[in-house]
Simulated assay, not measured.
Amino acid sequence: MRYVYVLEHSYEYEYEGEMFDEIKMIGVFSTKEKAEEVIEKYMTLPGFEDHPKECFHIGKYEIDKISGWEEGFIKWTDAY
């Protein structure tokens, strides 16, 4: 296995006038097709059924390879 497929669910919501991101890591799968099967199941579960299918995201990652953040990151407080 050279790649894995990471399934996440994310959406934005508003709370007291502020916008927030809600992100849930659902699982890591050996094929994209397996991740897609899980999406179909989760679309029927409480909470998930209230969000469109587009809220599910499948990322493809190569094993033992850096996939980002090699230059570091900034904190939200540093951005303002």
Rank of each mutant, 00 (worst) to 15 (best):
M1I: 11
M1V: 15
R2S: 14
Y3V: 03
Y3T: 08
Y3I: 07
V4I: 11
V6S: 07
V6E: 07
V6R: 05
L7P: 00
E8D: 09
H9A: 10
H9F: 11
S10K: 04
S10P: 00
S10R: 03
Y11L: 00
Y11W: 06
Y11N: 03
E12V: 11
Y13C: 07
Y13M: 07
E14V: 08
Y15Q: 11
E16L: 15
E16M: 10
G17R: 02
G17E: 06
G17M: 00
G17K: 02
D21Y: 08
E22F: 12
I23F: 04
K24N: 08
K24A: 05
M25S: 14
M25R: 10
M25T: 08
M25L: 14
G27H: 04
G27Q: 05
G27K: 01
G27L: 01
V28K: 04
V28F: 03
F29G: 03
F29Q: 03
F29D: 01
T31R: 05
K32F: 15
E33G: 09
E33Q: 14
A35E: 04
E36P: 05
E36F: 04
E37A: 13
E37I: 08
V38Y: 00
I39H: 03
E40G: 03
E40K: 06
K41H: 05
Y42A: 05
Y42I: 09
M43Q: 06
M43T: 03
T44P: 00
T44Q: 09
P46I: 01
P46A: 01
G47Q: 00
G47W: 03
F48W: 02
D50P: 00
D50T: 07
H51Y: 14
P52M: 01
K53F: 11
K53N: 14
E54F: 09
E54T: 15
C55V: 13
C55F: 10
F56S: 00
F56P: 00
H57S: 13
H57Y: 11
H57R: 10
I58S: 00
G59I: 01
K60P: 01
K60R: 13
K60A: 03
K60G: 01
K60W: 00
Y61I: 07
Y61S: 06
Y61C: 08
I63C: 08
D64N: 15
D64V: 12
K65V: 15
K65P: 05
S67T: 10
S67F: 09
S67E: 12
G68S: 05
G68L: 04
W69M: 10
E70C: 15
E70M: 11
E70A: 12
E71H: 12
E71M: 10
G72K: 02
G72P: 02
F73W: 12
F73V: 13
I74F: 12
I74S: 15
K75M: 15
K75G: 12
W76S: 14
W76V: 13
T77I: 14
T77C: 15
T77R: 15
D78V: 04
D78R: 06
Y80P: 05
Y80M: 13
